[in-house]
Design a protein around this nucleic acid. Structure first.
Lengths: 336, 336
DNA sequence: AGCAAAAATACAAACGTTTGCACTAATTGC
DNA sequence: GCAATTAGTGCAAACGTTTGTATTTTTGCT
């Protein structure tokens, strides 16, 4: 099965490859007549464009690269689906890489994408990411870079993020309304925008309620299951806490498990609220209050931003996706 | 920042591009001396190979494409991680596409990968997949295709699957040992190998115990949460069942939810066992007995098979990955 | 030293497009 | 009716590699 090229169809129609190329690209210089003829025979001969050759010549491609910390988190996998959906409809392809929260792997992913001459890159920074020189390199090369969720302000380009501040703010406010008085906060690395913003929201809600913000109530780098377990015990025994607002569902999960183990009843004696609304949140016992980030919508908006950039738009959009607090058993002391 | 090419480094060393190319490729025709010199100046000048150009010339690439039904299932996302890990170490790149269980999307993904001249393809069939002409096209083109999990025997090439039969067999045997006597089976489409095999395992365990296999006890296309809810009610009320072995965790989850709603206690009155060991299985209440498929190991083996193929190995491996029954509360009536 | 064989390198074409420029034919304006 | 524009197409180079073949240089041997 010989692969058929633009030349083959040119020969058959007795025109030149350049005309065929332009016809297929819908170039206005070609008459509707020949364009139609080219289209037809291209289909008839089963022509499939060689995007590699086109990439080489053009120096870019219709493929968009996406780097995420890990595809096994519900948030990221849903963002990906949202992006893919919209991008495919617009005729672009998406290729995905994981950084596994690892700087070295992130750099490798960037390199791979650049080598493959992707037309644009979508990325959410890994925890370890710093310096960002590898990312700036892409920008310098003229590759549009769209950041989402974990973003760095020193890298130019569109940024799509959640309303983390408000998500945290309403979560803590909700805990306060349910009578919790000593609320600790499980945070990620405060060097990362999302965790910083959520902490600000936590702080704002406390201060609005006339309560003082205590730094010792913030546990940095406490977003995995193990740290959740460990720190909830400290919060309870050493700080006399009666609730936790966690920046992630996994540490909230750990907290719930530890509390159960310790015989502390939730939400009667201790309130728990998470972030990300992982699928397991509604399956646990008690079910976990969390913040839905609407990742699919975020994905759609990211795709739109990328498409605009690929069409040469200069403007850098900054989009904030609203979030929704999903109230469940783990925080609901007052039934309404 | 001008991009530097093989020619630039040739000019600088006063040799030809071909020599540089061979030197970088570790070709034996090049003397160690010049090879070293080339390597050195390449690094010094910040040379980055243009893989697109190489792909065009060679007609293939070091990029491997992977098509999965959906990345948001724990099984698939872990297989992907396993593949990526090993592939990256061997110097290959992985690009991922989702079929969303949709034939049209699957065909599109195949087309995209072929257009991008991937060196090989890893795939697990979508539910809708049929005919397989699009996949055979890749095989005809000489692209190595490695199948995993959901495989079709009419497509040549290595196949890596779980020991579905044994997984089902031990699950049902375990239910029988716990005194369950009327066990129904939630299956997927029986046109797909994995579900077929699991049903065979179910059947074998029953027959070994001297119980008759009743077709009415098998619910086909019952692998999502909703069907699990619906069918467990039918099983209980119409068939007098006292347990279910489900081919997937999601329908087992649905069953557990419905049973709780109906006030049926698990495992005292009804036993439940699933498949895939989704993360939520151990978080539920009661925790869900399930079958761990060792997806990461599967991913590693897939990667090894692909690498062998890319190196020109003719042999088609058929690998079966063992599974482990994880016994939890939902099926454990006899505490040992 | 001289020659054949082997080793190292050079040459040039090829991969399949895209695109600036040149060219011809058709159309427009006056 | 003629110059000037425009529409439509062709020509040829370029993108950066790889690779078969030719050529040069080195090596080993007598």
């Amino acid at each position: 099965m010989k692969k058929i090229t633009i030349k083959d169809i040119a020969r058959k129609l007795d025109i030149t490859p350049s005309t065929v190329s332009r016809a297929l690209a819908d170039n206005s210089r070609i008459s509707p007549k020949t364009r139609a003829k080219v289209m037809e025979t291209a289909k008839k001969m089963g022509y499939e464009p060689n995007v590699i050759a086109a990439s080489l010549r053009k120096g870019t491609s219709d493929t968009v690269g996406m780097i995420v910390p890990g595809i096994n988190r519900s948030f990221f996998s849903n963002v990906i689906s949202g992006v893919e959906e919209m991008l495919n409809n617009a005729g672009f392809n998406l290729i995905i890489s994981q950084s596994n929260e690892n700087l070295k792997k992130e750099k490798l992913a960037v390199q791979t994408l650049m080598q493959n001459r992707v037309g644009a890159v979508i990325m959410s920074l890994s925890v370890q990411s710093s310096g960002h020189s590898h990312i700036k390199k892409m920008v310098k090369r003229g590759i549009p870079v769209v950041q989402f969720d974990r973003v760095a302000s020193d890298i130019p380009g569109p940024k799509i993020v959640n309303d983390n501040f408000t998500g945290a703010y309403v979560s803590v406010k909700h805990l306060l309304e349910n009578g919790f008085k000593r609320i600790v906060h499980f945070s990620g690395s405060l060097g990362i925008n999302v965790y910083k913003e959520r902490m600000e929201g936590y702080k704002a809600a406390l201060e609005e309620a006339g309560m003082e913000f205590n730094e010792r109530f913030v546990f940095e780098n406490s977003i995995i299951r193990e740290t959740g377990k460990r720190n909830v015990e400290i919060a309870l025994n050493k700080l006399g806490a009666d609730a936790v607002f966690s920046s992630g569902d996994f540490s909230a999960l750990g907290a719930l498990e530890k509390l159960k183990e310790m015989g502390v009843s939730v939400p009667e004696e201790f309130g728990v609220s998470g972030f990300a609304n992982e699928p397991f949140a509604e399956l646990m016992h008690p079910t976990l209050t969390s913040v839905e980030q609407n990742p699919r919508e975020m994905g759609n908006r990211i795709a739109l931003a990328i498409i605009k950039k690929l069409k040469g738009d200069e403007e850098d959009e900054n989009i904030v996706i609203p979030v929704d607090l999903i109230i469940r058993e783990s925080s609901m002391r007052i039934k309404s």
